[in-house]
Design a binder for these strands. Structure first.
Lengths: 105, 105
DNA sequence: CAAACAACTTTGCGACACAAAGCATTATAT
DNA sequence: ATATAATGCTTTGTGTCGCAAAGTTGTTTG
């Protein structure tokens, strides 16, 4: 592996990157949940700067993929949405992170 | 900064990420050119696994943004396209890289 | 000289991100 | 009591964009 040294093996992970996580808005959501374990809708909305509509549609997609768990409950007679990463979501984020780190290293 | 410790500052860079570079296909192109300084169209096509059409449209966008320089010349009576990063492209990639590393660190 | 090949470029379509509008419930003012 | 505003989301609509397929321009081969 001397004459064929190109460094190209290193960017192969990108070809199969998880686009669900790669999208900036969802990357923020995933990265945040990865750290705090659990957050509510409004707090996440302020932290990410996303509008309610965008946050809603992104969390729906992450939920459909099984990456996050969405728990809706009434607190003080008002709706309250709590989000947390699932095991699959945690694994997927770790995989994404490793792939990206390998390329940006 | 003890009670308000959230870690949220760390994912702010994502909100303003450079989407031109963030797109996986272009990230591969940029990451590759960042390392080798110069590559031809066909070689890059094989390295990235992109079709000619996709590579063409992506390099056009990177060129329009001033991130890469596209030099066309005839070699052996056949067209030959050489690509290389511009100074702006190099800076943009470094900025992208730093923003992502900060979040994935 | 026609048919195939090489090296791209352009076109067409489906997917998706974002913003604006909508909906359901609760709180507040009159 | 009834209207008005606010809260907490969800759904809809529009434009953008990535990808594959078809097209273009020039070259080599039978």
């Amino acid at each position: 592996m001397a004459a064929s040294e190109t460094g190209s093996e290193d960017l192969r992970p990108i070809a199969g990157i998880d686009r669900l996580i790669h999208e900036p808005a969802r990357l923020m959501i995933m990265a945040y949940l990865y750290v705090v374990e659990s957050a509510d809708f409004l707090f996440l909305m302020r932290q990410t700067g996303l509008t309610a509509g965008n946050l809603s549609s992104h969390t729906s997609k992450l939920e459909a993929a099984g990456y996050i768990e969405v728990v809706k409950e009434f607190v003080d007679r008002k709706p309250h949405t709590m989000l947390r990463l699932t095991g699959a979501g945690r694994d997927a984020f770790q995989g994404y992170r490793e792939g990206m780190m390998q390329v940006l290293r």
